[in-house]
Design a protein around this nucleic acid. Structure first.
Lengths: 352, 352
DNA sequence: TTGAAAGCGCTAACAA
DNA sequence: TTGTTAGCGCTTTCAA
C-alpha cells in the first residue's frame, strides 16, 4: 500500500515492454501473442485472455514502426487542411481529433493551401505509406488523386464538403444558401446582393453551391438575378468589407446582402456602420456558419454543425480502417443546417 | 518528349525503391549508402555523390518505420493543443506546420485540454516512442513531465508561453499587459477594470502575467487596485460579455476595461452597446492579440505575433533535433508586442 | 490451435 | 573509406 502510494504513476519501465515480453509472461510464442492481440481467429479463448492480461500488466503498446514494417497498418491518418487558423477548419480538426483519438488513431496534420502544395502532397505520400487514410478538409479531390491513393490501400474521406466517389461529410450548401435567401425574400427583399468569396484550391467554381442558391432563389421568386449584385472577394472580414463597399457604390444598392460566411458578413456590417447606415433598418445582412463571434455581433445566420462534421468524418475513417466500408462507398452524408434569427435582418426599409 | 508529356508525373514505381536498390545502383553496400545519405563522416565525396544520384534517380524516400526501428529518429513531432479551434492556437499551429514542414518533420496533433488529459498523454507517450519531440502550446509543463521526456531523449519546446527549464517562444505577457494598462492610464483613466479569464490547464495562477500587469500598473500610478474591479470569467466572447455586465453592476463602474484578450473584449463591447453605452465615450475597452475580427470591430488592442511564435518554436525543435541545442537550453525567447490604437479607447468622459 | 522461422528496410558496431 | 553482420519489434507463411 505504502509502496503503491509512493511510486505513484511511475509504473512504466524505463524501456517499453515488447511483444516478446508479453508472450513470455503469457507462456506462449510471440506469434500467438500477436494473433491474440490482433483479434485473429483460431486462438483459444483462454490463450487470448492470458495474453491480454499479460499485455495489460506489462503496459504493453505495440511499436507502430515495427507493426508497419511487418505489413500492418500505421495507425495514423493524414489530415489535409487549407487554413488551420480559420475557425471553420479549427472546428473540423477538433471534431476529427476526438473521433480519431477514440479509435486510437494519430492525426498527422498537413497544411495544403494551393493546388501545387496539394499535388506535392499526393505525390509524396504514396512513396512511403506513412498513413492509413487521408482526410481532406473542405476541398474536392481529383479523380486521379483518389485512384492513386485507393490503389495503395489508403482510404480517403472528405469533411466539410461533398464528394462523389468517396465518403464525405458536409452540409447541403445549396440548401443552406436557400435558407438564407428564402429568409430575405420572405422578409420582402427583392434587390438582394451576394458577397461570394474566391474559391482557392477548389476544383469547381462555386463548389459549395451558395452562389447558385442566390441565383436560384431569386429566380424562383421571379426576380432576375442582376450580375452587378454578385461580388466576389478574398476570404475574410476585410474582403467582406470591400465587397459591401462595392455593393454600396452601385447606382441602386441592394436592400439586403447574403454573405458567403459570417466573417465576410461581419466585414460587410462594418462597412455599413462606417457609412452611417443602420443594420438592419437600412440594409439587412445574413451570413453562414454561426461563428461564435456572430452571436456577439447579433448577426443573423445559417448555422452549420462544423465540429460534428469533423467527428463524423473521423468515425467514417475509423470504420473504413476496420474494413467496414469495403466495397460500398457510403453516399455523401449531409448534416442539417438551420436559420438563426438575430438582429441584422428585417423587412426592407422598416425597423424590425 | 512525347513520352515525357504523356507519362506526366506518374514517375513513381508501384513499389518504392529501397536502400538496397539505391546501393545496388550506386555500386556500394547498403551500409555505405546509408552513411552517404545520412551525411555521415568518412564517406568519399565521389561515393556520396554517386549514391545521391542513384537515390535521386530512383526517387528514393527512406521508410520512416524502418529508420526508426533501426534506432533512427521518427521524423515526427507531437503538438499538444488545448483548443485547436481557437484563433490563437490555430495561428500557432499554422506557424509550426510551416517550420516543421521546412525541416521535413511531420506534425502529429494531440488535443490536450485539462490536466488529466495532459497526464494521460505524458504517461502514454514514453511507452510508444512515436515522436522525436513535443511542442506544448501555451501551457506550462511540470518539472517531472519534462524530466521524463528528457530522459527518453524526447525534446520539448513551448510555444505561445514561457518556460524556465526548456526552450520556449512567447511574448512578455506582463509587458503586454503594461502596454495596455499604461495606455489607459495615460489617457487619464484611474478606475480601470480587468476581465481576466479562468486559466484552465495551466499550472500557476495568472501564468501569463496580464492580471499582475493590471495590478502593477495601477500601483505604479498611485492607484490602489480595487478587487471588485477584477472579474474572472470563462474564456470567450460570452465570458467577456458577462464580465462586463458584472463590472457595470458595480456601485461605481470603471471608466475603462482591460480585457484578457480580444474575444473577451469583443464580448465586453457587446454588453456595453446593449446597455446603451457608447464606446469609447462612456467606457474604453482594450484587449490583447489583434485578432482579425478586432480590426473589424475597431478594437484597440496589444498585438502579438502569434504565427511567428509557432514558426520560431518549430525552428527550435528542428535545431534541437539536429543536435544544435544540446547541453545549452536557450533562454525563453520573447517576441515583441505592440499597441494598436483603434477606436475603443479615449480619455474618460470625453469624445475621442 | 500453436510454434518456428523468415523477413519488412534500415542503422550501427566491428572488421577489413 | 567501405563491407559484413546483426538486429530493431512485429506479422506471417508453413509445419506440427
Amino acid at each position: 500500500m505504502t509502496e503503491d502510494t509512493q511510486s505513484g504513476r511511475r509504473a512504466a519501465p524505463a524501456s517499453p515492454a515488447t511483444l516478446d515480453d508479453v508472450a513470455r509472461r503469457a507462456g506462449v510464442s510471440p506469434a500467438t501473442a500477436s494473433r491474440a492481440l490482433g483479434d485473429h481467429p483460431h486462438v483459444a479463448v483462454a490463450t487470448r485472455a492470458r495474453v491480454r492480461e499479460a499485455a495489460e500488466a506489462l503496459d504493453y503498446v505495440a511499436s507502430p514502426e515495427a507493426t508497419r514494417l511487418a505489413g500492418g497498418p500505421t495507425g495514423r491518418v493524414a489530415v489535409l487542411v487549407p487554413h488551420p487558423a480559420r475557425w471553420f477548419f479549427g472546428e473540423l480538426i477538433e471534431g476529427l481529433e476526438a473521433a480519431l483519438r477514440a479509435a486510437d488513431l494519430d492525426l498527422v496534420l498537413f497544411r495544403v493551401g494551393g493546388p501545387e502544395e496539394r499535388a506535392a502532397f499526393f505525390d509524396r505520400l504514396p512513396a512511403r505509406r506513412k498513413v492509413d487514410a487521408v482526410v481532406v478538409l473542405a476541398f474536392a479531390v481529383a479523380e486521379d488523386e483518389h485512384d492513386r491513393l485507393a490503389s495503395l490501400g489508403v482510404d480517403i474521406v472528405v469533411a466539410g464538403g461533398r464528394a462523389a466517389s468517396y465518403p464525405s461529410v458536409g452540409v447541403d450548401d445549396h440548401g443552406a444558401g436557400r435558407q438564407a435567401m428564402d429568409h430575405l425574400i420572405h422578409l420582402g427583399h427583392r434587390r438582394i446582393g451576394m458577397i461570394a468569396v474566391e474559391n482557392t484550391g477548389r476544383l469547381a467554381p462555386d463548389p459549395d453551391g451558395r452562389t447558385s442558391a442566390w441565383r436560384a432563389a431569386l429566380g424562383d421568386a421571379g426576380i432576375a438575378p442582376a450580375d452587378e449584385l454578385l461580388v466576389t472577394v478574398p476570404w475574410g472580414g476585410e474582403g467582406g468589407a470591400d465587397g459591401m463597399a462595392r455593393l454600396l457604390g452601385l447606382r441602386t444598392p441592394p436592400t439586403a446582402v447574403f454573405a458567403h460566411d459570417d466573417e465576410t458578413a461581419l466585414g460587410a456590417v462594418r462597412t455599413l456602420r462606417r457609412a452611417g447606415l443602420r443594420v438592419p433598418e437600412d440594409l439587412s445582412v445574413i451570413g453562414v456558419d454561426d461563428h461564435p463571434l456572430a452571436a456577439l455581433a447579433d448577426l443573423t445566420t445559417v448555422a452549420q454543425p462544423v465540429r460534428e462534421q469533423g467527428r463524423r468524418a473521423g468515425e467514417l475513417v475509423a470504420a473504413g480502417l476496420r474494413g467496414e466500408l469495403r466495397e460500398r462507398v457510403p453516399p455523401a452524408e449531409l448534416l442539417p443546417t438551420r436559420l438563426v434569427l438575430r438582429r441584422t435582418t428585417s423587412p426592407p426599409g422598416a425597423p424590425r
